[in-house]
């Protein structure tokens, strides 16, 4: 038994029962991407169109590999956070739930694909 009134328990949580948590976490991933996106995009643009050996060597480097892993994780996190808001605005009922879950699973899948690829390249030289 916690000494909390019903009012106190509900304050700040709203109908979603999670308060501003989603909003807050989306800002955190956004701020991370302000730094990570340029750090990922410019080397990617630099390497785009180069040979297998050159690109493989570039992403075997610890700095590029770390940035790439951080970017894939944060970008796909931010992607499903944002897409969830878009879906909640435009789709309602059963499809809303189906799309949100699908978005989450696909984001996790592609983040895993990117992270696994970079780690394999980095660890096997």
């Amino acid at each position: 038994m916690r000494y909390m009134t019903d009012r106190k328990r509900a304050t700040g949580l709203g109908s979603a029962r999670s308060g501003v948590q989603h909003f807050w976490e989306q800002r955190v991933s956004a701020i991370a991407l302000v730094v990570l996106a340029p750090l990922f995009i410019f080397p990617l643009a630099y390497n785009m169109g180069d040979s297998y050996e050159a690109v493989h060597a570039a992403y075997a480097h610890p700095v590029n590999a770390t940035i790439a892993v951080a970017f894939f994780v944060t970008a796909f996190l931010h992607f499903f956070q944002g897409l969830q808001v878009v879906i909640e605005d435009y789709v309602h009922g059963r499809w809303e739930i189906v799309l949100i879950i699908t978005t989450r699973l696909l984001s996790a899948l592609f983040a895993l694909i990117g992270v696994f690829a970079i780690l394999k390249i980095a660890f096997t030289g």
Partner: peptide, 20 residues
């Protein structure tokens, strides 16, 4: 653009997967 970036980054992830 938010949705578009997600799709393009997914292709980039697959490109890295092929590299690996």
């Amino acid at each position: 653009t938010g949705v578009a970036i997600g799709v393009v980054i997914a292709f980039v992830a697959l490109w890295f997967f092929a590299l690996a």
